[in-house]
Design a protein around this nucleic acid. Sequence first.
DNA 1: TGGTCCGGTCGATCTCGTCCACCTGTTGAG
DNA 2: CTCAACAGGTGGACGAGATCGACCGGACCA
Lengths: 157, 157
Amino acid sequence: MDEIDRTIVNLLRTAGRTSYAELARRVGLTAPSVQDRVTKLEKNGVITGYQAAIDPESIGLGITALIGIIPDSSADHVRICDRLRAIPQIESCYFLAGVECYQLKVRVPKMADLEQLIHRVGAIDGVAQTRTTITLSTKWEDRPQPITTGESEHGID
Amino acid sequence: MDEIDRTIVNLLRTAGRTSYAELARRVGLTAPSVQDRVTKLEKNGVITGYQAAIDPESIGLGITALIGIIPDSSADHVRICDRLRAIPQIESCYFLAGVECYQLKVRVPKMADLEQLIHRVGAIDGVAQTRTTITLSTKWEDRPQPITTGESEHGID
DNA sequence: TGGTCCGGTCGATCTCGTCCACCTGTTGAG
DNA sequence: CTCAACAGGTGGACGAGATCGACCGGACCA
């Protein structure tokens, strides 16, 4: 994980379809070397995948909401997590330090779908209460912050 | 935006570096046709970009937190938004319907950085109060939900 | 000194991306 | 009904990219 790897990661983070040849030009190596580095980054779990960013509204997911979950005292978190994972509308799921121990980011086409979704989450065993907030607009999302020099050690590679 | 477009989007959403030739095989067209469709999807704003998914810990961003912002009554939201946008650690920013009218998802290397970041956000003109929640773990994030048939009209293309 | 490993280059080959000419089915006007 | 215009697809050609194996040079160590 040297300076060249960081540059490659920064480039792929903002332009995930950049060819190996183009990456090679940017970092001053040849294509096979870059490919080798990228393969290692993938194998080491630094790069976990590639995804096209889609405008949610264009595919009929015009409503975004955040749902906080307050568990009851007997909650089985492995079970809750499994049940949540089975709900496709939940795009992100964070386990939090707080009274609301989960926060979900969900997307649905219509309000009726959101209502149904809230009921479904609320019905999960161990969920005492949910608190939903509608997002009026997404200012930005998943903006990659450039990697700084690895001044702290992370034991990667 | 027909069935083939939806298939292409679903494929690119989960495997953003899939070649046009491979996409063509999957949808039963030729590579030039697929490329044409993808170009149109990009031009119409359906596909807004491509990004490699990176494990945050691997690049020294081990701490994720959610920051809620409560504005004061005289808040100028354009100004607040601009100031927030200038902070690179804020990866996502949602404008919410609620007392906390923004929620930020931030990532930093160390707790000290988070503290500094909270102070910086709190110092923005129009921000009355912030409320920060640490995420103990990310169960999953940015999981693409497959596009269903466009039963509602969205006026795309 | 010599062996080994790591990471890079180079060259050959195959696949992919991209452009262009052509084909087909649909639509709408005369 | 016929014909022109058009959208969207196919197929071929050619340049660029991906990928593999062979080789090279420096660092490390016995």
